[in-house]
Write a protein that binds this DNA or RNA. Structure first.
Lengths: 247, 247
DNA sequence: TAGATTGTTAATCGATTAACAATC
DNA sequence: TAGATTGTTAATCGATTAACAATC
């Protein structure tokens, strides 16, 4: 959540994008998170044969406000045409390039439970720069099993294989227990970006990005909102209707 | 992402917490997201027999700054003791109550692929107010299958069962295609909070909260950060070392 | 040219952080 | 009392939104 932010700043305290040799404009973290969403909306539009789209249309497809969309895109440069809109094709490739999806990223998944399998099989990655290249597990019953195109490898061979395949991005879908050790070993093997599904905080050196997906927390947040709505709706849906809580 | 915010405000434009009859102080959205993390850190401390914890210790266990932790907790009231710290037990229950985890929430999971199964089997929920109470799928091969304690039900029976079990929270782990229809039916059956894993934007009435977990987007965000680090590290790890990028 | 829509500015809002007075 | 640590204030920072001049 907050963790990955630490790596936006290098040891000297300067924002990464300001370092000499990396000239790209600085893209705010919140914007980066939405670029992926725009990319998906653009892909859907392209499939429907749409070749030009206005900020209003694209924003509505992405579930955001059009002012925010234009502001987000302005960080990448000016790729729209006033009075007309954005060219779907060219905007797609500008966003993809900004996200670094023109490079091919090999990803390792550690932990081949249901969650790991879901990620390994996720078609959403394929085409777009991200490819699951290795699966690891500690359970001897899983090792050697075929999952999609890949064979599950022993976590004992993690360092060797990760280094061999020059994997920089890893997904941790182990239980909380082994997660920190797995993380340390991934980092030692050259991984610099981690997506963590294990319900624990990972300690990493400053050059490593960690993003955390916390499934229990997501449901607890919904629980909070239910609680806030709760009283009223549960006791009397019609009262809630009267208060305009229901459409 | 932004979607769930819309439901914080009712039709009259007043923040929910301000409505008469719901006196709790307003807790910022960002704080709510972290309360779940604190709760987990507290559980770990309690297991280690710790009965009192300072904001500094708890913050470090939760991976945040101690000022932020104290600020977050101040929204719940004053449950610490100056010069001493927080009582693990009592802080745990205050946070749990704030999150609405004292009520029992029955959750439906729609889509029993790997992701749905991962959630259905997630032990992290059990004890704490959240219980997966129904599983649905459209695939006849899945219907009737036993998953954990539950039998997979036909999505055709969704309305009846959701209403029957007074389920208010649902998780959508279907492909993007059927997600909106599933969502509409859940809402019609009384669901008011949705956790969406399908890679699409859901349109819901204002009284419904949607949180979105976008796995492809998470990896694309990491791809962006890799890209930013990329050039340097790939060409010359030793140069990167010299720039202080590596510990 | 007239209508449409971008890119940007400025205002607002919310979230984070540091610092410290209150107080155990 | 002296040391420690909370709860809160004020400063800063970043993100969102509305409005509009630029321009296709």
């Amino acid at each position: 959540m907050t963790q990955h932010r630490s790596a936006d700043i290098d040891r000297a305290g300067k924002p990464v994008a300001m370092r000499p040799g990396i000239p790209e404009k600085n893209v705010p973290e919140a914007t980066v998170g939405r670029l992926a969403v725009y990319l998906r909306a653009l892909a859907a539009l392209r499939e429907h044969g749409v070749s030009t789209v206005s900020s209003e249309e694209l924003a509505s497809a992405a579930g955001v406000n059009s002012a925010m969309l234009r502001k987000d895109l302005s960080h990448l440069g000016s790729y729209g045409t006033r009075g007309v809109g954005y060219d779907v094709e060219s905007l797609t490739s500008h966003i993809a390039r900004t996200l670094g999806l023109t490079d091919e990223h090999a990803v390792a998944v550690v932990g081949v439970g249901n969650l790991g399998r879901a990620l390994a099989g996720y078609a959403g990655f394929g085409a777009r720069g991200i490819r699951v290249a290795a699966l690891f597990d500690a359970d001897p019953r899983q090792i050697g099993e075929q999952v999609g195109d890949l064979v599950v490898q022993s976590v004992d061979d993690l360092e060797f294989i990760v280094a061999q395949l020059t994997i920089n991005i890893a997904v941790i879908t182990t239980p909380a227990g082994p997660a920190q050790e797995v993380c340390d070993r991934l980092v030692a093997a050259g991984v610099t970006s981690i997506l963590n599904f294990a319900p624990c905080i990972l300690n990493v050196p400053a050059h490593v990005d960690v993003r955390k997906v916390d499934l229990a927390a997501e449901l607890q947040i919904l629980s909070f909102h239910e609680h806030r709505k709760g009283g009223l709706m549960a006791l009397s849906p019609s009262a809630a209707l009267g208060l305009g809580m229901v459409q």
